[in-house]
């Protein structure tokens, strides 16, 4: 297939007295993949995401964007290619939904420049895609968690980046929104974007993901197709509970073994 879009090689990070967060992590991700990243709390999932985005510098190793080190790009050209959806967005001020989505154009226009026709088009498109036109003028502080998540996702979409990195996007969403978000992420990947998301629920990744990574104790311990990674054996070892898997019509469920 095509070359790696985003990769990291030999990434190590130590922090304070807690010791190693990431130890010699190498991952390469291609455009069009929908990659799920599983791991325990504190396993370093968010840290790895932040390193891949260039928000955090690793102690050793480097991140490659289209084969070139991240440092070779300017901050705004990285932002034109990588978009970040943080775990929870708390708005400090009641900006309108539209303004929040418009901020996704900052990497393209620079700070303080007026939006051009193409920027407005990208914003309109992103808002339509996430069904936000109706609430365009509502203050983000008055939205529910799910609506806010859609706004941040629309902002990332307006960024027109080749890769979307999402930190636990399902947290705080009701079941319906989780399903809708997952199918939307599937569409984004099918359109040729790279989607990388961290998750706490292996089952939700099984069907939509094209690839699943497992991060344990600072190492990538499994990497491959969901069928091979999201298995009772791997998940039992990762989460420290003995699990039994049930496959049903393309989905896989786990129950605890009694």
């Amino acid at each position: 297939m095509n070359a790696d879009l985003l990769a990291c090689e030999g990434v190590c990070l130590r922090r304070g007295r807690c010791g190693t967060v990431l130890d010699n992590v190498s991952v390469s991700l291609r455009a069009g993949e929908l990659v799920g990243l599983l791991g325990l709390n504190g396993a370093g999932k968010s840290t790895l995401l932040r390193i891949l985005l260039g928000l955090l510098k690793p102690d050793r190793g480097h991140v490659l964007l289209e084969g070139k080190p991240l440092g070779a790009y300017s901050a705004s050209s990285v932002a034109q290619q990588l978009a970040y959806v943080p775990q929870s967005h708390t708005a400090a001020f009641p900006y309108s939904v539209r303004r929040m989505v418009e901020l996704g154009r900052v990497p393209h226009t620079g700070l303080g420049s007026a939006l051009r026709a193409e920027d407005h088009a990208a914003v309109d498109h992103a808002m339509a895609r996430l069904g936000l036109q109706e609430m365009a003028e509502r203050p983000v502080t008055q939205l529910s968690g799910g609506e806010r998540q859609r706004v941040v996702l629309a902002r990332a979409l307006a960024q027109e980046a080749k890769a979307l990195l999402l930190d636990e996007p399902m947290t705080g969403l009701d079941y319906g929104h989780q399903l809708r978000l997952m199918s939307l992420l599937g569409e984004f990947a099918a359109e040729g974007r790279l989607i990388l998301l961290t998750s706490h629920r292996p089952e939700e990744l099984f069907a939509p993901a094209s690839r699943v990574l497992v991060l344990d104790d600072g190492h990538i311990v499994a990497d491959g197709l969901p069928q091979n990674v999201v298995t009772a054996e791997h998940m039992s070892r990762l989460y420290g509970v003995s699990l039994k898997q049930v496959d049903h019509e393309g989905s896989r469920f786990f129950t605890m073994e009694k």
């Binding site: 932040r50 705004s76 990285v78 932002a79 943080p86 967005h89 708390t90 400090a92 303004r99 700070l111």
Partner: peptide, 23 residues
């Protein structure tokens, strides 16, 4: 007053502002 657009981005928080390429 001219710094106004910068404030919109900065008030998103560090990581979000930086992920939009803002120093």
């Amino acid at each position: 007053i001219r710094a106004a657009p910068v404030l919109d981005v900065l008030s998103l928080g560090d990581d979000e502002a930086r992920s939009l390429g803002v120093p």
